[in-house]
């Protein structure tokens, strides 16, 4: 057998010139289609006010969803985010009410640290106990909520107990763009940088893609998992402050069930629930799509009784559309 023959034989499949599109392209199309659809359904939709409203609405979801995405990347989940937001919202509001002169920066800092501490509890349990993360965080979901109820009882902190500057964090605008939205974009931008352009970020996806390989490559999986939960907690703390600032009323039931909204945004955004796949850009689009759907349906005078059911239906349609589009492109040799 002469080796020269086998050398000149073209290697099978040499797809260096494969066309590529961004994974998010399909979601972008979905978002544009939805906006166009609602704009034709109701004239009230395509206005600056509505867009500002959507931007504000999606902010708190997006901030927490970015954290949730980090956790999902590592093949874990955090269902305690709603309770963490609730507890930090209550503590931040109580602190502000109790110490009126406290600089807002300090309030935010304290809330973030508290949230990070709660997240660290989750992270430490998941990383060291090797108990499935859904069980651990289901446990802490009830524990954090329980602490919240015990502290708050039936009391309520309302806008009257809070200084005006507190709500200003949430209601302000810059050049007509809601401040809240800018915070959320900043968080997403930073997370994108970490995930896409640092070793730590790529390693998080690696852990979720194949945990055994990560171990054999010497990637510090436990530290990354712990980190992802802690950051998620921190972002929940930030979200907690913003919640109080935005809605003005804080009681023991703040953000109950919020974890499902967050998960919906993350999953619509293309983050794989079993880890290893996803982008922060996708999460931004996921949160935007959900917000456009709920605002659009409300403006289109859909009966409030049917609102949730129709919302669910539109979400399923949106995801299906994205997947079908992506599979079609993939079957034509375009990688995503």
């Amino acid at each position: 057998m002469s080796t020269s023959d086998t050398r000149t034989a073209p290697a099978p499949a040499l797809p260096e010139s494969r066309r590529r599109i961004h994974r998010e392209a399909g979601l972008g199309v979905v978002l544009v289609v939805l906006v166009a659809l609602f704009a034709t359904l109701t004239p009230r939709f395509a206005t600056g006010d509505t867009f500002a409203q959507i931007g504000t609405d999606l902010s708190i979801v997006l901030i927490v969803a970015v954290g949730q995405a980090l956790v999902l990347f590592t093949r874990n989940i955090d269902v305690s985010v709603g309770s963490t937001v609730g507890l930090t919202a209550y503590l931040a509001a109580s602190l502000t009410a109790a110490v009126p002169g406290l600089p807002l920066v300090l309030t935010v800092l304290v809330a973030c640290l508290l949230g990070a501490a709660l997240g660290a509890v989750n992270g430490a349990l998941v990383a060291t106990l090797k108990v499935p993360s859904i069980m651990v965080t289901l446990g802490t979901l009830y524990i954090f909520r329980g602490i919240n109820s015990a502290l708050a009882g039936s009391s309520q902190i309302t806008a009257q107990n809070l200084p005006d500057s507190y709500s200003a964090i949430a209601t302000g605008t810059v050049l007509g763009i809601p401040l809240m939205f800018l915070y959320a974009l900043a968080v997403a931008g930073l997370a994108h940088l970490v995930i896409r352009h640092t070793f730590t970020g790529r390693a998080m996806l690696a852990v979720g893609s194949d945990p055994a390989s990560a171990e054999r490559t010497g990637i510090a999986s436990k530290r990354l998992v712990f980190g992802a939960y802690t950051v998620t907690g921190l972002l929940c703390g930030l979200a907690g402050v913003l919640w109080g600032a935005r809605y003005g009323t804080v009681d023991s039931s703040v953000a109950t069930g919020f974890e499902l909204v967050v998960l919906a945004a993350v999953v619509v955004g293309g983050v794989r629930i079993t880890g290893g796949v996803g982008t922060v850009g996708g999460v931004v689009l996921g949160a935007a799509i959900l917000s456009v759907i709920s605002t659009g349906l409300a403006l289109a005078d859909v009966s409030p009784f049917w609102l949730q059911a129709i919302q669910g239906l539109v979400i399923i349609l949106a995801i299906t559309f994205d997947l079908v589009l992506r599979r079609r492109l993939e079957s034509r040799g375009v990688s995503t």
Partner: peptide, 19 residues
């Protein structure tokens, strides 16, 4: 193979050594 199926060839090579 000790690989990360969802990451690219470049990323797999990068993660194996000092990045």
């Amino acid at each position: 193979p000790v690989t990360f199926p969802d990451l690219t060839v470049t990323e797999n090579i990068m993660l194996a050594g000092p990045a």
